[in-house]
């Protein structure tokens, strides 16, 4: 009887604590961590982070209720920190620091970025990171690591039409890229001008021929050299006209020329034919795709101009699967801990 009374009292207090908790969050937001950069409020020992006073029924909280509060606060703080970290670089204050030349060096920036790259790749990476395949490779690596510890995760299907537009690489070259779309090259506006007519015609004629040769596994050195000469001349002409076109146009055209160079690189690989056969991305689901990439030792390569939407779609599917993988992995870790305690 005493035990029943005690249990009823205990659960009653827990319920009270939950109600108080709900009231607390309705009335006041949780304490946020200090902002990552705020010139007004540098932290000091004499001015610890203030908190709003707790009033009303929340004062009557047992230790168990306090634990639940703390867990929820920690979770919310984590979410806020996550969000604030993601968005820090897009804030006005960052631009103000850049103007005053007090930002980290590019190397410090890259190092900092590597440390949070997975979180960014999962939640809301910039499109440029998806299209450069960075976000996809971050997720791929994470999934390859996580697969050994996770329990069952529902499959996330991938449309076959998406994988046809995804480039992969062994790491030696940037993938098929423009070789895949040799018959209908997406020439940027600037390079469609009459000034580039000769080189454009040569590339339009030579690249499809090289693609067909690569498929058969026999690329002609003469044709390839002719193609590379045309690309170099194209690049020289582009550089020479840098003063006459806008920076945006130049960057777009330069990116295309770089992809033509990448095409030349991959055509020189002895196993280039594999990109059309064995190394063509396969899988009906994200899990199958990851297994395929792992078995073949492949990574994702940057998107060819025009294939960006397929990369965005694939990223979404992979991010959803990776998040589910983590959740199932944490549950399986928790159950392991529980069994250890028993």
């Amino acid at each position: 009887m005493k035990r029943i009374t005690f249990a009823l009292s205990f659960f009653g207090l827990l319920l009270l604590a939950s109600a108080a908790d709900a009231q607390l969050f309705r009335r006041r937001p949780p304490v946020a961590p200090p902002p990552p950069s705020n010139a007004y409020t540098k932290p000091s020992p004499s001015s610890p982070t203030p908190t709003a006073p707790v009033v009303g029924p929340a004062a009557v909280i047992t230790s168990s209720g306090q634990y639940m509060l703390d867990v929820q606060r920690a979770y919310l703080m984590q979410e806020q920190v996550k969000r604030s970290k993601l968005d820090t670089r897009r804030k006005a204050y960052e631009e103000w620091l850049y103007e005053r030349a007090v930002t980290p060096t590019p190397e410090e920036f890259r190092e900092e970025d590597r440390q949070e790259q997975l979180r960014r790749s999962q939640i809301d990476p910039p499109l440029t990171e998806i299209w450069s395949a960075k976000a996809l490779n971050d997720l791929l690596l994470d999934m390859q690591r996580a697969s050994s510890t996770s329990s069952y995760v529902p499959p996330v299907p991938i449309d076959d039409s998406i994988l046809k537009h995804i480039n992969v690489t062994t790491g030696r070259s940037p993938g098929l890229g423009l070789v895949r779309s040799a018959d209908r090259l997406p020439w940027p506006y600037v390079l469609q001008g009459a000034y580039y007519q000769d080189e454009r015609s040569k590339v339009d004629k030579l690249l499809p021929a090289l693609a067909r040769q690569a498929e058969r596994g026999m690329v002609s050195a003469v044709t390839l050299r002719e193609f590379m000469d045309a690309v170099r001349t194209l690049e020289s002409k582009l550089r020479a006209s840098i003063q006459d076109i806008s920076s945006t146009q130049y960057v777009e055209a330069k990116r295309f020329v770089t992809q033509l160079h990448d095409a030349a690189d991959i055509l020189q690989e002895p196993n280039v034919g594999n990109y059309f056969t064995r190394w063509q991305p396969k899988g009906n689901s994200v899990e199958e795709l990851v297994q395929f990439m792992t078995a073949q030792g492949l990574k994702f390569a940057p998107a060819t101009i025009g294939d960006e939407p397929y990369y965005t779609a694939l990223h979404r599917a992979m991010a959803n699967y990776d998040i589910a993988l983590h959740k199932s992995g944490s549950r399986s870790m928790a159950s392991k801990r529980g069994s250890y305690r028993r």
């Binding site: 850049y98 440029t128 450069s132 960075k134 806008s246 920076s247 945006t248 960057v251 990116r255």
Partner: peptide, 29 residues
């Protein structure tokens, strides 16, 4: 100003994206 020059001026008044900072083409430009 020529349209291309004006566009370049306005664009350069903005900062480069994180991905652009990793590209050699940015420094070439």
């Amino acid at each position: 100003f020529k349209p291309s020059h004006a566009e370049t001026i306005v664009q350069l008044a903005h900062s480069f994206a994180a991905e652009d900072i990793r590209q050699p083409a940015t420094y070439e430009l």
